[in-house]
Design a protein around this nucleic acid. Structure first.
Lengths: 341, 341
DNA sequence: TTGTAGGCGTTATCAA
DNA sequence: TTGATAACGCCTACAA
């Protein structure tokens, strides 16, 4: 069986006695063709089983319509959900996505980026936090980051400060004797850090007794459960009989903590109120559905793409690359059963 | 600020007084160059800040190294985990992935595929189940499907029949009075259907009392919980006081059922043993860690890529496209607490 | 070890 | 309304 090569404009031209230019026009400017010609060409396309070749088009006009995406991993609900939404924008703007998973190694990500540049991507979306934004800015193509350090590039972030405040405020409504925030160590400058300060700020401003517990977490479910068990012991010893409002840095950990509570008490005792962060499936599907602060994933993705295509357009029209734009999306409090009553 | 165009082989050639061919060789066959020449060129690349353009290379040699991927959604652990692993194979074989999310509408997926073909993908991996394999086979490029109808194309699937048997056998070990399988309706011909028949077969072969309950499930967590509550009532009425071994079609539902049990009994009563399917995070992170039948995601992805690159190689070397190959990966029983004792 | 010339399948520019 | 011709940036004989 022969490998039959695809038909080209040349073949269509020969077959129809038109020139290649006319065939090209059929696709890019059909209105300038005589209706009769259009029909002839349409028929020829079918007869020759024509398959368009956009690679050749890229070379000729420079528009790849490729966007590179670098995601750090797929373990966190956040990343694959955002990716899902980004991919979904194909329906609106036609950009195709070349996706890479970053492995936290700077060298790898640099290679990924080189590869993406070699394929002439028109823009880049970065969710991984390995490379400093300064380096990304040097790429000379539009870059938008989501929820990561973003000093030198445009970005979209959740208002994490507000998220921390929402959580604290919600727990405060429940007459807790003490508010406790559990988190792993995160460095200043990255968005998630603001959750901590938002929480603390709110408590301080409103004279609420509170405490922040930082431990190595997000290791593995089992390891985290162990750590959370220890934290529970500590908290129990420290605030016996008092009502504790717990804000945990993400829903997976919140679910883990809830399970630890069930392990100890067989239920969610009335001395504990609990709120997580992310609105991940883990919160909804927990034994007791967990209240949480949800990021607006759809909006984050939409804003990121909007920002990126603006910049791509601007670059095409020859505008000088302007200063980084930082957009912020408000999180939303989701009340479920762990903070009911 | 000027938009400076990227340097090309032509520029490097002029700068170094070599010919374009030599520059090309520097990249594709460096050994045939004089070491001195290599150094000169290397320096020129830096001086001119050269950025390679793989689009032009594609046009010249026909190798895009693109692979198209179509995923149905990101709600099921299975899909994004497989995608994750597929993307990870970049490290080994250098294929770049253009990813689309199918929206269960045939027309859309056809457009996605047309787009992918226009970008000259060398192969296609399909996880979505919208288009019949016959249609995929007509594309005339290597196609591999994963866990879906696959009559006319190559595929990789979990041995779902075995999965059903493993679950039944495991429950049988626990001296259950009756084995019950809960599932939503799935049509014959798709892999997941075999789980049901594997379960039933095993029970029949071993003279085990059993029942298959089919209900509309996988709707939403809340709706499913309602349905599962009803199922629990039914089962309780039907087998009062007896020990019931429950095999549920996926971990999210298993987790839902466990929560329903907790809601009713405050614990996992000894009259219920429970096993899910998938080894998704939901099973590990449930109040009581749920036993499950795990698919070997890494292997599924690896096999799929191996199969695909074999076919791509074969096609390049002019081999006639041979008959579809179907590979099977054995699932693995994961014992956790819902089937302990 | 290096160079010349032509081609990959489009689009862009001018011209008719 | 249509064509001729030259890019686009690289690769591949074939030559030297």
């Amino acid at each position: 069986m022969e490998i039959k090569k695809n038909a080209t404009y040349g073949d269509i031209a020969k077959y129809t006695k038109f020139s290649k230019t006319t065939i090209s026009r059929y696709f890019n400017d059909p209105d300038t063709l005589a209706p009769a010609s259009r029909e002839i060409i349409a028929k020829a396309l079918v007869d020759l089983d024509y398959q368009e070749n956009k690679v050749a088009r890229i070379l000729a006009n420079g528009q790849t319509e490729f966007i590179g995406v670098i995601v750090p991993d797929f373990y966190h609900h956040f990343f694959y959900e955002i990716l899902n939404r980004i991919l979904g924008t194909y329906e609106n703007n036609g950009y195709k996505f070349l996706v890479f998973v970053g492995n936290k190694k700077g060298e790898m990500e640099r290679r990924y980026i080189q590869e993406l540049m070699a394929y002439q991507i028109e823009g880049l979306i970065v969710l991984s936090h390995t490379l400093p934004s300064q380096e990304l800015a040097e790429l000379q193509i539009p870059v938008v980051t989501i929820e990561r350090e973003d000093q030198f590039v445009s970005s979209v972030n959740t208002d994490n400060e507000l998220g921390g405040r929402l959580a604290a405020a919600h727990l405060a409504e429940l007459d807790c004797d003490v508010l406790i925030h559990i988190n792993s160590h995160s460095s200043e400058g990255i968005p998630a850090y603001d959750r901590v300060s938002g929480f603390s700020q709110y408590c301080r401003e409103n004279g609420l007794r509170h405490q922040v517990i930082i431990r190595p977490l997000d290791v593995s479910y089992e390891a985290d459960k162990q750590t959370l068990t220890e934290i529970l012991e500590q908290v129990e010893a420290q605030y016996p009989g008092q009502r504790k409002g717990i804000f945990i840095s993400n829903d997976t950990l919140a679910n883990g903590f809830l399970n630890v509570l069930f392990h100890k008490f067989g239920c969610l005792p009335s001395t504990y109120r609990l709120i997580g962060f992310d609105d991940s499936p883990a919160s909804r599907a927990a034994v007791v559905p967990i209240s949480t602060v949800g990021q607006r994933l759809e909006q984050l993705a939409q804003e990121a793409m909007a920002l990126l295509s603006d910049q791509i357009r601007a670059k095409k029209s020859g505008a000088a690359s302007s200063a980084p734009v930082h957009r912020v999306v408000e999180p939303v409090l989701i009340r479920r059963d762990t903070t009911a009553g």
